[in-house]
Nucleic acid binder design. Structure first.
Lengths: 158, 158
DNA sequence: TTCAACTGTTGTCGATTTCAATCATTACGA
DNA sequence: TCGTAATGATTGAAATCGACAACAGTTGAA
């Protein structure tokens, strides 16, 4: 794309060619921020944010995560997990179950209402992802998913 | 008592197989957070965070960004840009230059000291990226960069 | 001229992050 | 065994970041 003789003062057109706009770190932050913003406003009608959905999703999965596991996996401070679980529990979406093998740890389980809401939230999240990933082909999305997984979790194969 | 062959208590081994760990949105946030954290502690000796580096980098580029452009491009509130530029200006790294064509806008330009520090910061950022992207091959990194660029700059709407 | 729109700036309020301290429980070593 | 360290959850406070409204100065257009 030859810009030729356009004498336009630095517009948003050529800012995407600067060094910064080629750094993966910068691009990842921007993409993640866009996706989170979109997902948040998509989940708003359910009174949830992506954070709540993350906890709810794990609570409703076959995994029985302790709050410590949630903090580690979601990169949250334990106190933040307390607040999140408090909120979800007060809405009757999850409950704390003390582990019989270690009475210090509390396992978070989704209730039936929690699972019901989780499914709706998952649908909305998929919809948000569908919009956010609009300009990407299906092959690109799968490649992105795989690269991100090996980046986040280390070596992983399909 | 343990009921028959109940599934093994969820460890960190199988949490990476849950639905959430396959959502691109979730993975992107995690990857971006990891990268930002690493870059921040890499830039710490220079008294900079990635935010400051982003502004400094753009100020030192051939683009002469106004604060408005910085806010738009970096997804920041204009008031946040004021604070960032204030800090960098007080350290003699950038300066505000009023645009003669439009005296409302102030163009941010890096000083010689700013450019000097920006080069060091760029080197450290590349080093941080090198570490963060460790498990990825060169081809994967290039693919990731390309996909992220088309995702971020490909189609913009509000 | 007059008014609307825009840029930078300040201030504020709520959310989020981070850290230290505490209680209950478990694990380990003398 | 006892005593001490370590861990999980919880609370609370401090620091930081985010979004938002209001304002002054400037520009552009009717």
């Amino acid at each position: 794309m030859a810009q030729s003789s356009t004498v336009v003062q630095g517009d948003a057109q050529d800012i995407v060619d600067c060094d910064l706009a080629h750094e993966i770190e910068f691009l990842a932050v921007k993409a993640a921020a866009n996706g989170t913003r979109r997902a948040n406003q998509m989940l708003a009608p359910l009174g949830l944010k992506v954070r709540h959905y993350a906890v709810l999703s794990l609570a409703c999965s076959s995994i029985s995560p302790s709050q410590r596991m949630l903090a580690d996996f979601l990169d949250l401070d334990p106190s933040q997990v307390v607040a999140l679980v408090d909120e979800l529990e007060s809405r009757g979406l999850v409950r704390r179950v003390v582990d019989k093998k270690d009475r210090r740890t509390k396992v978070i389980r989704g209730t039936s209402r929690g699972e019901e809401l989780c499914e709706k939230a998952a649908a909305l999240t998929r919809e948000a992802e569908e919009i956010s990933l609009g300009p990407l082909s299906e092959a690109q999305r799968e490649a992105l998913r795989q690269i991100l997984r090996s980046l986040v979790f280390g070596a992983s194969e399909a």
